[in-house]
Every structure is written in structure tokens, then in C-alpha cells.
Simulated scan of single mutants.
Amino acid sequence: MLSNADIQTLSGQADAAAARRDLPAAAAMLAELAAYDPGDAVTWKKLAAIHRALGRSEDAMIAIGHALAIEPRDPLSLLLKAGLIEAKGDDAEEPYRAALSLIDEPDAAPPALRARLEHARRYCDTAHRSRTVRLSGIAASEIDRLGCTREECARIDAFVLGIADAVSPVLPMLSRHAYHDSATFAGLVAVARGHAALTVEYLRLLADDAMAAVPYVDHPTDVPLDQWVDLNRSRQWSAAHLWRGGGIVRGNADRCPATVEAFAALPTPVIGGRSPNLMFSILAPHTHIPPHVGVTNVRLVVHIPLIIPEDCSLTVGGERRGWMLGEAIVFDDTIEHEAVNDSDDTRVVLIGDLWHPDLSARERTVLHALMA
């Protein structure tokens, strides 16, 4: 076991080895320190930098991942991660943007850091211009082909600006309500009234395959978890996915044909890599899904209640409602929302997504092309 004096000595020797460019020796000593104290983010950052200098990009990425798991909002670690990603030729915009957002006064930063921040800005600006040109071209082509109206063009242009700026596009031109009338969506009332058949398929699915449901929240450890700390990779909130991010989950969906068919008749967005989404959402007893918001209001979220104990509720925009069998709930998840199961039993709802009813068929076609 290393004493505090041993740790200080080894750390100093590692720094000295790095200073004289004996990088293999520095890496070996830093690796020893990291193994002894894996919670020291500074050691992991130093080790990542040494691995990068030695050309060991995979080892550097592993080390910086450990550093970010400890300090997910450290701008220096984010810059190093972004640089490693960029060097591989992959898209590094997200970590560069995250690092830039965390520096309050970039002009006051040390010269070496200022240079890295300026590189990050140039990288993000270039990505933004390229994305804007590409998306604007797609939108213009689709608008011309479909003959969109002036109002449709305005909404499409606003959507292009939102995704070009690398933010989630929330369109104020669409009607914004915490809850929407389920009768607005053709066929939805009938689906909700047919909940018994959907519940049978859910129960059969979990009886046949207990692992059909997985933790709904599954974030990497090197990103800020904030409100998801308690639920990350937890079965307190799990989901049995039938469609996920635009792809059918074959094993689960095959066992639930009536459920899949019921949603196939609804106005569900079909967007490569994004939608449809359809899942049984399973909330364990005495579990709280904390307040959070979704990505865009061009699609809404629908809940079909299946197994609803007492003391369960959904709150959207401060308005609390309970689920009732036979009645669908449709809401705008870009408005802050949360859910709670205060009972001693499991709550199950079927969750899917629907196009916002204000969007015309032409607009949906263009948005499909843009998001794909």
C-alpha cells in the first residue's frame, strides 16, 4: 500500500519524467497512481495526455473517460476528448461545444487554453455552416417539390435553424399545450379502449422473457447525470421496447403483434434513427421520475394506461393527472414533466409518439427528410 509520501514522490517523479520527455516512464508511473487511487481525476487527465503524446489514442480515450466520469463538466478533459475524436476523423462537435459552454471568460484563459478554445470555436462554426447549407438545401428541394405554403415554409425554416444550431427545435408556431385532446388523433381512442389485449401481450412478453425489459435510463458514466443519478441503469424504471429510435426490436415486437398493429394505424413519425418509438414503460413501486424535458415538439408523446395502481400520477407543466384505464394521455414532452408511483405495486403504461396535429402532410415529409 502506498503512503501519502509515496504518492507525492511517485507523482513528482511522473511529472519529472514527462518534463524530460521520458513519456513511457511517466505513463507507467501515472498508471500505477491511477490504479491505487482511481478517483483522482488529475492523474487520469495526465495519463490521457501522455498516452496521446505517445500515439496511444485508444488508451488516451479510456483514461479521459475515467477523468470525465469523476468530473463530467471539466472543460480541459472535454477538450482532450474532443481532440482525440477529431484526430480519428469522427464528429467532435458535441464535446467541443460542451467545453466552450463551460468557460465563462475565454479571453481570460491562459494562452495555451485560449488557443484550444479558439480551435474549438472554429471547429463548431465550420460544422454549423456545413450543416446549415446541407439542411437548407434539403429543405428548399423538398419545399419546391411539394409546393409548400408560406406558413409551412416558415415552420420548416424555423426547424432548420433549430437543428442547424445543434439545439432541439421547439417551434413556437405549433400550438403548445401541456396536454392535448386524445380525440384529435384518429384511432387513438379505440387503441386506449382496447387496453386489455395490450396488457395480455405485455404480461406474456415478460413471462416468456424477463430480460425483455431493460433500464430505461442508460447513460455513459462520463457525462453529467444530474437528475438521472438515481435511475441511471436502474430497473426502478425499465422499458420493454417494441420500436426504438426508428428500428423495430424484433424479439419483443414479434411477441406483441396486436400492440404493434394498433400503433401502426396511428400518425406516428417515421424518421430514420429517431422514430417510431413504442415501449412498455414499467415504473417500480415508490419510484419518482424527476422533472425533465424532451427534444422537440414536432412530435408528441402518448401514454396508454395498462396497469395503474392508486397513487400514480403524471405532471406536465405543473398540471397533475392520474392515468385512467381506457383513456389515452397525449402531452408535449418539451414542457417539463415528471411521473411518480407512490404505491406498493408496479405501474405500466404503453408509450409511443405521434406527429403534432398542426403539421401538414407536406411538413411531415420535409421534416422526415431533414431528420433522416
Rank of each mutant, 00 (worst) to 15 (best):
G162S: 11
W237V: 03
M279G: 03
W243A: 01
A369T: 05
E327V: 02
I282M: 15
L2N: 04
D74C: 03
Y216T: 03
R21I: 02
Y202T: 02
E336T: 11
E32Y: 05
A127T: 06
D344Y: 06
S234G: 12
W228C: 09
L113V: 14
A239Q: 13
L54M: 15
G65L: 02
S313E: 14
V366N: 02
E32G: 09
A16D: 14
A16M: 12
E118Y: 09
A27C: 06
Y123S: 07
R321L: 11
H292W: 12
R131I: 07
L278W: 13
P267A: 03
L79G: 08
R114K: 15
V217C: 10
A140W: 08
A60I: 04
Q236I: 01
Y216C: 05
G83F: 08
L68C: 11
P172I: 00
R21F: 04
V301S: 12
E105I: 07
P111V: 11
L100Y: 07
A196P: 02
T296N: 12
E105R: 11
A5T: 14
N4E: 15
A258D: 05
H368P: 02
A17D: 15
D208M: 10
A240F: 06
A92C: 12
S275D: 08
K88S: 11
P224W: 15
M173F: 00
L171H: 09
S136I: 01
I103H: 02
E71W: 01
R20E: 09
A372D: 15
L350W: 06
D218A: 14
P95D: 09
R362N: 13
G251H: 15
I271W: 06
L306D: 09
A25C: 06
I7M: 07
C153L: 07
K81D: 11
C124R: 00
I351M: 14
E151G: 01
